Amino acid sequence: MAQDVSFNVHNNNGDPVRVDAWRFGDPDNGLKVHLQAGVHADEIAGMLVLHLLMQRLAGAESAGRLNGSVTVVPQANPLGIGQFRQGRILGRFHEATGQNFNRAFDQSAALGRCATNVQAWQRKLVELAAPADVMLDLHTDDEALPYLYLHRSFWPRGRALATAMKMDVAIIWDEGGEGSFEETVIAPWLRAGDTAGRMAATLELRGQGDVADHLAGQDAAGLYAWLCDQGVVDEKPVVDDWPVEAMEMGHMETILAPCPGVLVFERELGEWVEEGQRFARIVRRPGDPSSEVVLQAEQAGRMLTRHRDRLVPQGMVVAKFTGRRLSRHWTGGLLDPN
């Protein structure tokens, strides 16, 4: 029977809200795994994945096949879940303070006394995950191929995870500096030089609209197979071979909208685009053919992500591409600094 390890925080009105969390297995015997979804609140796909995975973990636990423990937080952010405006959830940022929900976890974890409800929530979430040997944070992009995001310390070991999850690309990073949840959890490991037998990664489960039983079932099966492969579940893993492209984060090309307007993609996700080839256009003033602005690839690569909305402001991320050389725009840090 899974142990309830939920905790309460306070929302913007000061009312208590609950972060549901369950622990399967014995944390004193074997690998300790922490799985969570929805840190940004509007990234829904992972919530359904963990909802389905929990049913499989419950079966494994009742059959005595768990070696170690798996803590699951299927909806990690009750503060963001309550931020609906005109029928749409405002997930990435805390409405009252403007803070990105997945930034400054390190600062919140170090505070003796939290000044905001976001800080209190962040600290409690870090405390729940801190004992883990393995942490997987489930996210989604706007529209995207499935991809993995992980520190260099965990590559190439992370290839097994990407293969189990049928992820097309693994983006390898070296430095962050913004205090994301993943950075904060692994910081003590890196300081101690103790990454053997450990793993942490952010899993981007396609796009925000990709919430469906067949996709969630595939992803839950992939996570379960990987847990079997890691020895957490005493079953033979069933993992098909899958080609995974390892990509240095500095080689990723992020294309921003040079102007506002109607965004029209001329290439699909996953398509290969040559350097200089057009992949989209922005119609600045509908009705005026001369107002169309063509967007071209900075270098040859695959379209990994693209903007979900088709009316864009200037400066918005339009698309991200894999690349074969260091991007001329690369300045270090996170893939998405904001």
Score class of each variant (00 low, 15 high):
M199I: 12
L205W: 09
S153H: 07
Q314P: 00
Q314F: 05
A162R: 01
F7K: 01
A60V: 04
E268T: 05
S180E: 02
Q36M: 15
Q299Y: 00
R18I: 04
T195K: 03
K236W: 06
R310M: 10
L125M: 14
A201T: 06
R123D: 03
A60D: 02
V118M: 05
L256C: 07
P289E: 13
L50H: 03
R56E: 15
Y149W: 07
K166Y: 05
Y147L: 08
C228R: 06
A130M: 00
T184V: 05
G25E: 12
F101M: 13
D229A: 14
R157E: 14
H329F: 02
P337L: 11
L90Q: 03
E43D: 11
L269Q: 11
E175H: 09
A192G: 06
V312S: 01
W189Y: 07
K236F: 14
W22P: 03
G217T: 08
G46R: 01
A300P: 15
V5S: 06
E61Y: 14
N12L: 15
F24A: 08
S69K: 02
D141M: 06
V293E: 01
R113Q: 14
G179Q: 05
F154R: 01
W272D: 14
P78M: 05
A225M: 02
R328K: 15
E204G: 00
P188F: 05
D234P: 10
I171D: 02
D133P: 13
R85S: 03
Q299R: 04
G332V: 12
V318T: 06
C259N: 09
A110W: 04
P337H: 02
P289A: 13
D142G: 00
P131E: 12
A201F: 05
L311Q: 06
E183L: 15
A104M: 02
D15C: 06
L57H: 10
L145F: 03
E245H: 08
S291C: 11
G80H: 00
H329D: 13
G59A: 12
N8F: 09
W242S: 09
T331P: 03
V312L: 02
T202R: 05
V72C: 15
E248H: 07
G98S: 12
F84I: 00
L138K: 04
L128P: 00
V294F: 13
S290F: 13
K32D: 08
L203S: 04
L53P: 10
L256K: 10
T254G: 06
G301A: 08
E143P: 01
G64P: 11
E143T: 14
V317F: 00
D229C: 11
K166S: 14
G177R: 03
L66S: 05
V233C: 03
